[in-house]
């Protein structure tokens, strides 16, 4: 079985890497199979990955590479068909729907490509929402929301609704909302894809800053090469597998090569 052999090899490699550092996410032999009628689609075919506490990791890969699926599994949005995923040492396959909601609420912050700010609520209410779900008292939630909105540079726009905010400002609200419950992981799904170049850079800088100051692990899927530049590690996916996982300083030159590969 060549599949098994490959997995073992990856395990050894992982073991070396993880010796000295804490892991926030640990994925072992993760497989996800979608059933579309009688057809089975193997979105992930045995993914092993360890994501260290406090690091900023970017995930790259063409569409259909399993990037989004990996994301959903790590984010506790979907259970793997096989293998296991540990988030903060919790095996998410063991959790029921209510416990998954708890995990999503306290351990994970989401940043979406299209912001997904609740339209009928103000910026402040949006940031308070996850805290209220977590059972934080109203006053406390409000204080924290004000504090964190000020942090992301929206100190004067608490009471604006998404309609009155630009894309970049909406994404800032989303970042504030993601950090509200002091999660262990921030999951960002192409956070700059809908933004212009300049605003995108600001958002990237903000995310990096929050990553450093709060010590939160950031997992970010992206096509944006500026995003890679600030990452600690970069993971490439292809055909439902991890094609490469490397530190930022190791791949400096190889980014171009990767581009060439992709073009071919």
């Amino acid at each position: 079985m060549p599949e098994a052999a490959a997995k073992t090899k990856a395990d050894y490699w992982m073991a070396d890497l993880s010796q000295a550092v804490d892991c926030t996410v640990m994925a072992r032999g993760v497989e996800v199979v979608y059933e579309m009628g009688s057809e089975k689609i193997h979105a992930l075919q045995g993914v092993d990955a360890q994501i260290f506490t406090g690091e900023y990791i970017s995930i790259m890969g063409p569409s259909g590479s399993g990037k989004t699926t990996f994301f959903n599994v790590v984010g506790g949005l979907m259970k793997p068909s096989a293998g296991s995923v540990y988030i903060d040492e919790i095996d998410i396959a063991q959790l029921d729907a209510g416990e998954l909601a708890w995990l999503r609420c306290r351990k994970i912050g989401y940043i979406f490509q299209s912001y997904n700010i609740v339209k009928v609520m103000t910026a402040l209410e949006n940031v308070m929402l996850p805290m209220l779900f977590a059972g934080v008292p109203q006053d406390e939630a409000q204080n924290r929301a004000v504090e964190i909105l000020t942090r992301v540079g929206l100190g004067d726009r608490f009471l604006h609704t998404p309609k009155e905010l630009s894309g970049g400002q909406q994404q800032r609200v989303a970042i504030a909302r993601a950090f509200a419950n002091k999660p262990a992981i921030i999951l960002a799904d192409e956070p700059t894809a809908n933004l212009d170049l300049h605003t995108g850079e600001e958002i990237i800088a903000l995310m990096k800053e929050m990553n450093r100051e709060e010590g939160v692990t950031v997992i970010c899927s992206t096509h944006d090469h500026k995003m890679l530049d600030i990452s600690d590690r970069i993971m490439w996916m292809e055909d439902g597998r991890v094609k490469k996982l490397a530190r930022r300083d190791e791949v400096d030159i190889k980014i171009d090569e990767f581009e060439e590969e992709n073009k071919a």
């Binding site: 949005l77 209510g98 909601a101 999503r104 989401y110 979406f112 997904n116 609740v118 779900f133």
Partner: peptide
């Protein structure tokens, strides 16, 4: 759909 999905991501329970 997307809004409901979002609040579920933020930790809303099915009952909520």
């Amino acid at each position: 759909y997307r809004e409901i999905g979002t609040i579920k991501c933020l930790g809303a329970l099915d009952s909520f």
